[in-house]
Design a protein around this nucleic acid. Structure first.
Lengths: 189, 189
DNA sequence: CCAGTATGAATGAACG
DNA sequence: CGTTCATTCATACTGG
């Protein structure tokens, strides 16, 4: 949290020098991060497989990237955004005020880019890739963004239920319960 | 990275002392993972309730474990196996359209960066050091007795219903080739 | 080099 | 069953 230093690793695959550092893990270039951030602030939170593919494909122009990187990026970004928010507005505000528990969050992050669309287009000057409408995301990917986060998700965390409650909790495996004629040649089965 | 850094955190191996070990969530020991992986690679995909209990019982020898852990493990492993395929599907095709329209700004790093394309990148976990002839673990030294429904069992030759198909996105990863239909690019450009 | 932090990756647990 | 959430691990990066 503290610093928000944007990594400048920028090692744009300059090849030569960077030879040694084999990618241990994906290291996004600043362009990639920028685009991803833009998308995120535009409301995209959980891109579909389809969208991930397209995003990945597009970003691969700026450097190596795979679909899973995009997938993870969104997962992490969303999770951390939520986590941060949670951490930030923890208490129950027992003191005065905050009765409404309003969120102080400001959705659209809009880092430094106000006229996102325009800027972007201009930046990449891709004649063909006109921006036009921003809502290309068909699905309700970003339905309930910010406020009214489904806090209900905190299912009280079942703590250490170490008991022998081994009994099957109803598996939702809607399938026969009796002994299937299955047999693996495993000794202990 | 990737891929192979299988967690070494190795919590307590001995289930016994595990008494109060931080039970946030189950943390399988490497033996448990190994056995589960072997079972999976043996063809077991959706163990029955019975099987789950036996497996769980067997694995409890290596540490704490509950039936639901086994259940979840298989669910996750199977799902991710599939998902991985899908996400891994397209590599970055060739480059980012080298020679294509791109030619505006710099970039187009041509991805020559060291060695193979994304091969190494694939790390999506799957040590897959599976040893075919898994040497069944030592006989169950303890417990296990109960319903000894061994024998008989007309070896129902693996899960027949392996193909449920019916994916939402049904990508079948025909691989590459942009998605013919609706290629509407995202707003990010 | 070492400590601290930002963040990519992995995975257990659930949800719909 | 596919998808999503939460937590944790591992590693790239930064400051001292």
């Amino acid at each position: 949290m503290s610093g928000f230093c944007i990594r400048e690793r920028e090692r744009e695959e300059v090849g030569s020098g960077s030879g040694g550092r084999k990618c241990g893990r994906w290291n996004p270039t600043s362009e990639q991060v920028k685009v991803l951030t833009e998308l995120f602030s535009s409301g995209l939170r959980t891109p579909s497989t389809d969208q991930i593919q397209r995003i990945s494909n597009h970003l691969s122009f700026y450097g190596n990237i795979e679909s899973k990187n995009v997938f993870y990026w969104f997962q992490n970004h969303k999770a951390r955004e939520r986590h941060k928010r949670r951490r930030l507005s923890f208490h129950n505000h027992d003191d005065h005020g905050v009765g409404a528990d309003n969120n102080h969050n400001h959705t659209t992050i809009s880092l430094n880019n106000n006229s996102s669309t325009q800027s972007f287009a201009e930046l990449y000057s891709e004649p063909e890739k006109v921006i036009e409408t921003l809502q290309l995301f068909p699905l309700n990917s970003f339905g309930e963004s910010e406020s009214s986060e489904k806090m209900s998700r905190v299912h009280a965390n079942d703590q250490c239920r170490d008991n022998n409650n081994n009994n099957m909790f109803s598996y939702t495996m809607g399938e026969k319960n009796d002994h299937p004629p299955l047999d693996l040649r495993l000794s202990f089965m």
